[in-house]
């Protein structure tokens, strides 16, 4: 058994040791993710407004910014998924 794991728990089985600060990191990721979603929604409304106004030059910049937020979210999910879960279902 790895040194990262405690002995068997009679009720929950093997319990992983959670690295310090991991819970705070996950909560911060959720909070930042919600803020970024709001920014993306705002970018979408700005893009729609520019499209309807007929000035089409800046639309790709807005799409690029939205894409950066999305890719950042995917990377964050992949990084967070590597660590052990701290609470909840297995």
């Amino acid at each position: 058994m790895s040194a990262l794991f405690r002995g068997p728990d009679p009720e929950r089985g093997v319990e992983p040791i959670v690295p310090p600060g991991r819970e705070a990191l996950l909560t911060a990721a959720v909070a930042i993710g919600i803020v970024l979603l709001a920014i993306q929604l705002w970018l979408l409304t700005v893009a729609l407004d520019i499209y309807l106004a007929g000035a089409r030059g800046q639309l790709w910049v807005l799409a690029l910014l939205s894409g950066v937020v999305f890719v950042g979210g995917v990377v964050a999910i992949r990084v967070i998924s590597r660590g052990p879960r701290t609470t909840g279902r297995r």
Binding site: V30, G33, L37, L41, F70, I80, S81, G88
Partner: peptide, 24 residues
């Protein structure tokens, strides 16, 4: 869980990105 919420947020983020690209 927070992880599930994050996954849902990333899916929503992808949908918003796709909509912005469609407009562009």
């Amino acid at each position: 869980s927070r992880r599930e919420l994050l996954r849902l947020a990333v899916l929503t983020s992808g949908a918003l990105f796709a909509a912005t690209v469609a407009i562009a």
